[in-house]
Design a protein around this nucleic acid. Structure first.
Lengths: 226, 226
DNA sequence: TGCCGTCGTCAAGACCATGTTAAGGAGTTG
DNA sequence: CAACTCCTTAACATGGTCTTGACGACGGCA
């Protein structure tokens, strides 16, 4: 499990990134200041560092130079300044990637994954997150509130199919064709049963739904819980 | 002198980039089409590839997949499409950096320099470590808790294949094709038997797994023990 | 409100994938 | 040539998974 140190003074951003990356399986440690960040880099030897250049206590470029002086750890820089000169100077100072704010956490994660891939670490798989659900298609694991779910093959395929289309209603016919791969007159009853099983394993029932909602006469959809 | 292949259909951009990079001392080769680009990658083994995703003859994502299938060369993608979804998909497809047009040639060069710096890192002679398992593909040895394991050739190949993909489920079909190298109708039963033997030597059984988990209906995976 | 079609859940059985052992054959080595 | 290793295949046991039908509940519509 790769570890990340994120150095960012804005608490909101720091906590958001920490939460999302943790959920995806990273070992995340947040630092609000350059000094704290450096200490964490030294003590935790992270696999990658996410660095905000606009820190209050030290110029980002200075910090980057110091980091480079002590370790080769990949550094992804995130900052509000996107001018060419800044980008070039930062990359030449040893940054591995440069992201201009505002950016989505998903893109940040993708870039972190890209630099990690180069360092020959065990890959973090691409995982969906829906509420407290984390679904990893490669490992074929699904976790609810950090607890591993025991899903049968069809249940897992079904969940992935729905997770790829969060918020969108899909018909049973469509599920029969895409998940069951039997477009002919197969009884669509199986779908109901599997949905029921999935609901039970997600800790909900048709009467009290959190993730799986049925739209009467149309189909079902996976939703972010309220 | 690092060599670069640039795959870009717009002649103006291609020549501009070629000229500037050449001036900076790179060995630059330009390709206007995906096909030409692939050929150059194969014949010239460049140190880095700059890829425009909007090629006329082949979807950029497809080309990237093909490049990744044949080589690990760093790829810097440059494209007009900057939406999150595109960026993430492209990075996950194996790109090392992603630049949105319009960009300055200077920034492109800085990014090329950044990925080159990274790939120039010395390759360590690497052994896999999974829990208390240490696997050295070069020496063809595997140790469990510091005890040398006596594995047959197939068992070892199988273990290495799984260790290269820790946490990822691989199908028997895939194993048949990649480890056995017999994609035809070879009975996949052999896989079961070898897995069973491997488990026994790893001190576990299907009922009580530590390293090798089977995912019913899908395949098996090697995992870090809890 | 009452009807009809849709949905939710349960339980049973058929079916299928896997685990394991043992036997046999091909190839290798001394 | 005999002993050995290794791989494949068959056979059987086992347990997980899917489908199906039944039945009741629910929702939409007149």
């Amino acid at each position: 499990m790769p570890s990340v140190v994120i150095i960012e003074d804005d608490q909101r951003i720091r906590e958001l990134v920490t939460r999302v990356l943790s959920q995806k399986g990273y070992d995340v440690s947040g630092a609000p200041t350059a000094l704290d960040g450096l200490q964490r880099i030294v003590s935790e030897s992270p696999d990658v560092v996410v660095l905000d250049m606009g820190l209050p206590d030290l110029d980002g470029a200075e910090l980057l130079k110091m980091i480079r002086a002590i370790t080769d750890v990949p550094v992804v820089v995130a900052t509000a300044r996107g001018e060419d000169r800044d980008v070039i100077r930062t990359l030449d100072a040893g940054a591995d990637d440069y992201l201009v704010k505002p950016f989505s956490v998903e893109q940040l994660e993708a870039r972190v994954r890209a630099v990690l891939r180069r360092s020959a670490l065990p890959d973090v798989h691409r995982a969906f997150t829906v509420g407290d659900l984390v679904i990893d298609p490669d490992a074929r694991t699904a976790m609810l509130e950090m607890e591993l779910l025991e899903l049968s093959p069809k249940e897992f395929d079904l969940l992935v199919y729905l997770a790829e289309r969060v918020g969108v209603v899909v018909s049973k016919r469509q599920l029969m064709a895409e998940v069951w791969r039997q477009p002919y007159g197969g009884s669509e009853k199986s779908v109901d049963v599997h949905i029921s099983w999935l609901r039970k394993k997600l800790g909900e029932s048709a009467a009290e739904t959190r993730y799986i909602q049925t739209v009467h006469g149309v189909g079902i959809k996976l939703v972010e819980p309220a």
